[in-house]
Nucleic acid binder design. Structure first.
Lengths: 120, 120
DNA sequence: AGATACGGTATCCTTTTCGACACTATGGGC
DNA sequence: GCCCATAGTGTCGAAAAGGATACCGTATCT
């Protein structure tokens, strides 16, 4: 998020869940993190893999993930420019969540099929 | 979500992740699901446990979760009214995700402390 | 000379989210 | 007669998220 939608640390038990989800919400962050699981990926490669994300959105989301310390950005002094994104140490610890999301999504595709045909 | 922010089922590998996250995004759904893990909870009890959620938001989120088949709503014909929410069969399969979020959040509280003091 | 690829920015606009507040109906306690 | 609790609904408006489009500079390919 990089902009907290939460005001305090009065932390009821649900607070940790709220905090964690706030880092990967938005339409693209979880997907980006998923694509980075295997190793470093370049900007446009990420763009291609993530479907319909616009350049602006991808830039924004990557910046926020970087600010939150979940990914790292490496610029190679080349022409044409080459910028690689990779999971940070902390970002790697998110893997169980990303994997769980992937697994659940795969197992429940029927649900999305219904939702999308019914209302899209 | 209940309103798809996605257009198609052209499903690149990241699609499953995107689909799954779309069900629990927003500020409250994951927290609600977390509070329902232990068993049925009444409306106002959920409200109290979830911190600063307004009545309207809680109602909305519960309705969407119900529409998506993740929770069930049971109304008892009493006065004052009594309405209980519980995880559905499918909702229970989300537990690994919720637990992973909780665990990660607990393990990374330092990050949120920094974010919140820096910008809130 | 023109098109392409790279990794972005800047600007504008629409959609979605979310919070504040008021309002509902019922019955019980004071 | 009035306020309390329960579980909501309706309307309003601000703010945030997200999409469209145009633009940048460099270098290489044709």
């Amino acid at each position: 998020m990089a902009k907290p939608r939460h005001s305090r640390l009065d932390c009821t038990p649900g607070c940790a869940v709220e905090a964690a989800i706030s880092l990967i919400d938005g339409k693209w962050k979880a997907v980006i993190l998923y694509h980075l699981q295997e190793g470093p990926v370049r900007f446009n490669e990420l763009r291609r893999r993530s479907g319909s994300v616009t350049q602006r959105m991808l830039t924004n989301q990557l910046r926020e993930l970087e600010t939150d310390g979940l990914i790292e950005r490496e610029v190679f002094a080349q022409v044409p420019p080459r910028v690689e994104y990779r999971l940070s140490e902390r970002g790697r610890t998110l893997s169980p969540i990303i994997e769980a999301l992937k697994a659940w999504g795969d197992a429940n595709m029927d649900l999305f099929a219904r939702r999308w045909t019914a209302r899209a």
